[in-house]
Design a protein around this nucleic acid. Structure first.
Length: 271
DNA sequence: ATGGGCACCTGGCTGC
DNA sequence: TGCAGCCAGGTGCCCA
C-alpha cells in the first residue's frame, strides 16, 4: 500500500501529537508482523520521551531519547492517532500509548508491516543502510538516474521500484511517473536517453509532491493519521484505468503484468 | 553483479 | 450459497 506520499502524510499527521510526549506503554496484540516484534520492546520503551517524527524512504522514524523506532506500513498498514480507550477493531496489531491520553494505533490486515527499535544511528540499521538517495535530495538527479540505468537490461519500471536505486516509488507512482515522463514501463533501462532520465527525475518528484499535497492515494485500506483517506486517486492518469480513455490523448489505457504486478500505460503517449 | 521468483498474510471480488 | 482462483500501495532473501 503505502508508498512515500502515504508514509509522509502519516508522518505529518502524527508529528504534532507525538513530539515531546512520553511513551506510557507499547501494547502488542499481534507480534507476528513481517518480522516478529521483539518481546523486550515494551519494557524498553516505557517512560521514553519522543523527540522527532522522521521518515526515510517508506520507513517512519520515531526518534526517542537514545534510540529510534522504525515503523513500516507494509502493503495494508495504517497508523492512526486515537483517544486511549478507543475500542479495538480487527487487525489492530499494536498501540503506542502516550502520556497525553492518546495512542498511536497500528492496523494492518496483511501483517506485512514491521516495527523495529535501534539504539544506534538508524541510518546504519540493516533495513536502511543500503537505500538510495531520497527523491527530493539533490543527489537524486538526471545525471544519477542516467548513470544507474547504464547497462541495465531490466525494465525501467522495475528499476524505479528498486529501493537501492530509487526510493519511495511503488507500484502506483512508478506507472504514474512513467506516464508523465512519456516512457513505456517495459523499456529496458539502458535504452532510456539522457533527456528521458531528466524528465523521469522531475516526473517522480512532481507526482510524489502532488500526491503528498492531497494526502496520498487511497485505493482500499490506507488512511492518514486522522483516519481520512488520500485524494490523489482522482488525479491518477493511468493506474487502475485500463480500458478507459487517456486523459491527455483519448487512447485506451492498457494494463500489463511485470514481475507479477500490474502496470498501466498509454500506448500513444508513452514510447 | 544482475535479475527473477518466492515468501510472508488477509480479504474482496469474479465466475462457475 | 459455496468455493476456487485471482488480485491487492512492499521488500528481503535465495538462487541461477
Amino acid at each position: 500500500m503505502p508508498e512515500l506520499p502515504e508514509v509522509e502524510t502519516t508522518r505529518r499527521g502524527i508529528e504534532p501529537h507525538v513530539i515531546g510526549r512520553t511513551i506510557v506503554a507499547l501494547e502488542v496484540y499481534e507480534p507476528r508482523l513481517r518480522w516478529p516484534v521483539a518481546r523486550a520492546l515494551p519494557a524498553r520503551l516505557a517512560g521514553r520521551r519522543i523527540l522527532a517524527a522522521g521518515r526515510r524512504a517508506k520507513y517512519l522514524l520515531i526518534g526517542l531519547e537514545g534510540g529510534t523506532l522504525i515503523v513500516h506500513l507494509g502493503m495494508s498498514g495504517s497508523l492512526r492517532v486515537l483517544a486511549d480507550g478507543t475500542p479495538r477493531l480487527r487487525h489492530d496489531q499494536y498501540d503506542l500509548r502516550l502520556d497525553s491520553g492518546r495512542i498511536l494505533r497500528f492496523n494492518d490486515p496483511r501483517r506485512f508491516g514491521s516495527l523495529h527499535y535501534t539504539g544506534a544511528d538508524p541510518q546504519h540499521h540493516r533495513l536502511l543502510r543500503d537505500l538510495a538517495p531520497e527523491p527530493f535530495d539533490a543527489a537524486f538527479n538526471a545525471e544519477y538516474l542516467w548513470r544507474v540505468t547504464r547497462g541495465r537490461r531490466l525494465a525501467i519500471k522495475q528499476l524505479l521500484m528498486n529501493s537501492r536505486l530509487v526510493v519511495g516509488v511503488g507500484n502506483i507512482y512508478a506507472s504514474e511517473a512513467l506516464f508523465r515522463a512519456r516512457i513505456r514501463p517495459g523499456r529496458e533501462a539502458r535504452r532510456v536517453t539522457r533527456a528521458e532520465a531528466a524528465r523521469l527525475v522531475s516526473a517522480v518528484r512532481t507526482v510524489l509532491t502532488q500526491a503528498i499535497r492531497v494526502g496520498g492515494t487511497t485505493l482500499r485500506d490506507y488512511v492518514g493519521a486522522d483516519g481520512s483517506p488520500g485524494y490523489f486517486r482522482h488525479k491518477l492518469y493511468v493506474y487502475e484505468r485500463a480500458g478507459r480513455p487517456c486523459r491527455v490523448c483519448g487512447a485506451a489505457i492498457r494494463r500489463r503484468t511485470q514481475q507479477g504486478r500490474s502496470t498501466y500505460y498509454c500506448p500513444a503517449c508513452q514510447r
